[in-house]
Amino acid sequence: MTGAFMSELLKLRRRGLLLGGGGLLLGFTALFTILGIENATKGATRGRGFHVTVAELSQPDGLVRGIERASTLMGIVMLGIFAAAFGTEYTTGMLRNLLVREPRRVKFLTGKYLALLVFAVVIVLLACIVSIVLALTLAPGKGIDTSAWTSSTGIADTWRAVWHLLVAALGYGTVGAALAIIFRSPVAALAIGVAWILPAEAILSALWSNGQFWLPGQLLSNFASGGSSSVSLARTGLTLVIYWAIIAVGTSMLFSRRDVAT
């Protein structure tokens, strides 16, 4: 497993991926943070789109509003990164080389997955840091009181939000990895993953009132925003853990048993 972990880290350490995936993630987070602060209104009523009020942003959790808003897009980017990492092994034919060097397939899969988790954690944390630094820099110019952000409650809220965002991002990535293994293609995995999480789940949740309890995209989004009044964070987390276990067992069995004929 160590070999698979190290080899995947070597593969991930390339300019295209760092600038593409990492840059996209940092860019989205920065954009949402800037738009959130620049469009903050003085009035008491909440605006539309990216609008929040200055009063809302001055709350202890105001620092992470920008990150939270970027969570779904961040998740989609993460889904794409994981799907590409697993799917290209099939499309390039590299999988046969890799499995000759590490024939213990579950160990190979686990090592590769763990390396991607580390990579994902690093870039999500970087995105959070960028967002926080931008928010702290821009907020005073818009008259936002940041004293609550650095209070003990504010710091705790920020840590919690970052943790929720991180878990959700890894969840999206796991979906991408599973789809890539099932469909043996990064493009198919990305297309199906995005189509499911965005339009398909939106339609399903509109038609099915209990969809928020079970649909994976809804659950991940709910977890990223720290839970909701209708679906608690604990229930969301538990359902996601069950899904993760099913995905882990299912994809491991599929990957172990399927012939590598490409």
């Binding site: 160590t2 070999g3 080899s7 593969k11 060097r101 590490e102």
Partner: peptide, 11 residues
């Protein structure tokens, strides 16, 4: 780098 990746994988 491709060879290094395979070398790392196979230790």
């Amino acid at each position: 780098r491709n060879l290094e990746i395979l070398a790392a994988l196979g230790r």
